[in-house]
Nucleic acid binder design. Sequence first.
DNA 1: CAGGTTAACTTGTATATACAAGTGCCATTT
DNA 2: AAATGGCACTTGTATATACAAGTTAACCTG
Lengths: 238, 238
Amino acid sequence: MRRITNGDWPPGFQLPSEAELCREFGTSRGPIRQALAFLRSEGAVTGGRGRPPMVRSSVPSQSFSTFNSFTEWARGIGKKPGQRTLEVARREASPEAAEALGLMPGTTVVEVLRVRYLDEVPAMIERTTFVLEVGRKLFDFDTDSGSIFAFLKEQGVDLHSARHTIDAVAASDEDAELLEQPEGIPLLRERRITRSGDGQPLEYSEDRYLPALTNFTIDNTVERRAALVRIHTEGATP
Amino acid sequence: MRRITNGDWPPGFQLPSEAELCREFGTSRGPIRQALAFLRSEGAVTGGRGRPPMVRSSVPSQSFSTFNSFTEWARGIGKKPGQRTLEVARREASPEAAEALGLMPGTTVVEVLRVRYLDEVPAMIERTTFVLEVGRKLFDFDTDSGSIFAFLKEQGVDLHSARHTIDAVAASDEDAELLEQPEGIPLLRERRITRSGDGQPLEYSEDRYLPALTNFTIDNTVERRAALVRIHTEGATP
DNA sequence: CAGGTTAACTTGTATATACAAGTGCCATTT
DNA sequence: AAATGGCACTTGTATATACAAGTTAACCTG
């Protein structure tokens, strides 16, 4: 049923009925319905009892690696990714990172500070804290050469799932200087905790984007819940 | 199979095998597998060939109406929602709203400007533009009484799907005054285009949140793509 | 011509069965 | 004691069949 689920159907296209698909693929209805159920779960087709499926306009999504790796994302949009490393340091975790990573205060971690570029233009500042076992691998890696995410995956680090929180902050002195922008301008902030398959926190990152260059977008419908959640916080904006 | 898909299973719980579920529910394997496939598509259970499903920690999500209606969302988090309407006006659409709604420049629309409160604290400014056929209903509605979203649904308006874009902006004079905050502070901005079931744009809204009070969060994994997409823009921040 | 009815077709749900591919535990062998 | 193999059990995929619920278009009647 790969040809159904992987099919490149134009939006608005009326798929054949299940009976026709069975004839066309020379198969029973079970696998056809399974494939269509998958497309429905992805929001890719619509329809209902009595009406054959119709292709909906594509629902934007990004894979785990595309979303979590700036380098991969930049390439995907046809931009040349770049990075300048300000620091790779082994030090005691900040209170915020310690809390996010479930570490005791004062635990040794590896912190990375980089500016990320799109076509030579500063687009984002990335402050990342890794647990020591993961971060130590970076001392053997040229962090100016590309994707830390890809490197760690190659090293067998199980970067499996992440929670992302999005808010807005004012550019600090340091931010402003690195991004070549005025101090205090609004930056779109994404904080991320990445875990291994068995739930161990491995990475805590705070990325600050120029909103002029990067936005986040999502679709939702009455039929399909948004995985993006608006949450209430009590914290003060730094 | 409602009892499976609606079951309140604690994270980490080992579901019975499919054979046992068949015995327990006195049904064939088909519907059991269908229910489990649904849970898998929601990311709620994991497992695989040879291993019975196990419940994963819950994946946060919000329904269309909870995400799109500030009032409903506020109630859901135990806060008292409030609103103060600055304006309900019939006028020519702004160029931006016209473009978003697919209207000719100068087309008459209905614009609403409100401050939204959580427990009497200003939390968000909402600037909404409705196409005329929808917006005109608001002249018979007390927009200080609650949810426009709910009211329009009651009126039979088919608010069906939406695309949300998230970025950050600096608080304007007006923003700052309405939110009782200093001018220029970073605000988390969500722009939304809401459409009817047959794709007609009905509403364009620009909501500006205090990031100290409201964030957005999402989970993604290697197995399950994020519907939230990081996009590249070329626009300048206003 | 407009409205109602009906039949053919559609998807949704379910049953029983069969085989393939994978897991995990226990017993045997090295 | 550790490694390996076998077996019972598991999920994944598929077939054929049956019935229910809904859609759509054609036909008939007023």
